[in-house]
Simulated scan of single mutants.
Amino acid sequence: MELNNLKSAPGARKARRRVGRGIGSGLGKTAGRGHKGQKSRAGGYHKVGFEGGQMPLQRRLPKRGFKSQKLKYNAEISLATLDQLGAAEVDLLSLKAAGLVPELAKVVKVIKTGEISRAVKLTGIGATAGAKAAIEAAGGSLAE
């Protein structure tokens, strides 16, 4: 076998449909395009979403929603995760190193999900009112 002798399997290459070649072909005269109208003519078609001049659906419906690009710089961490971390002092860099917050994060806040049993000192990390109370009850502290 050589490269110049390679052939595709029989039936693998199907001849393309030749339209507009007389009655006998079965696709003569209108060539499968029906009668008249924009779609029957050469070069006659329209943009996606075009409705013949009628106000298109995407313009009839109201604009909704907004997603702030600043959200990607915010992160949150639960009390339970903070407890599992097991560090006495926690700051933004230690959370990033542990892989608990994304590298992009600039603002981190502790939320009250789960319990904390050990004393933890937080520096440069915010906390919700409930989380702050739980941390202080466990003997920890918050320094902004």
Rank of each mutant, 00 (worst) to 15 (best):
residue 107 V to F: 07
residue 51 E to R: 03
residue 79 L to G: 05
residue 137 A to I: 04
residue 64 R to K: 10
residue 75 A to V: 00
residue 114 G to Q: 07
residue 13 R to D: 03
residue 126 G to L: 15
residue 24 G to C: 04
residue 30 T to Y: 12
residue 125 I to Y: 00
residue 15 A to G: 06
residue 113 T to N: 03
residue 83 D to A: 15
residue 69 Q to E: 15
residue 3 L to T: 07
residue 35 H to F: 10
residue 29 K to M: 11
residue 54 Q to W: 06
residue 93 L to F: 13
residue 38 Q to N: 11
residue 54 Q to L: 13
residue 26 G to S: 02
residue 81 T to Q: 08
residue 39 K to A: 12
residue 54 Q to M: 09
residue 109 K to A: 07
residue 121 K to R: 10
residue 89 E to G: 10
residue 34 G to H: 01
residue 29 K to F: 14
residue 88 A to Y: 04
residue 96 K to M: 11
residue 37 G to D: 13
residue 111 I to M: 03
residue 124 G to Q: 11
residue 72 K to Y: 01
residue 26 G to E: 10
residue 92 L to K: 08
residue 39 K to S: 08
residue 72 K to V: 10
residue 107 V to Q: 11
residue 19 V to Y: 06
residue 38 Q to F: 04
residue 65 G to T: 02
residue 109 K to C: 13
residue 81 T to C: 02
residue 26 G to R: 14
residue 140 G to K: 07
residue 93 L to W: 09
residue 131 A to T: 03
residue 83 D to C: 06
residue 80 A to E: 09
residue 119 A to Y: 10
residue 103 E to A: 13
residue 25 S to C: 05
residue 103 E to F: 00
residue 128 T to V: 06
residue 90 V to C: 07
residue 8 S to K: 05
residue 73 Y to R: 09
residue 50 F to E: 15
residue 94 S to D: 07
residue 120 V to N: 02
residue 48 V to T: 13
residue 39 K to D: 02
residue 139 G to N: 08
residue 127 A to N: 02
residue 128 T to F: 04
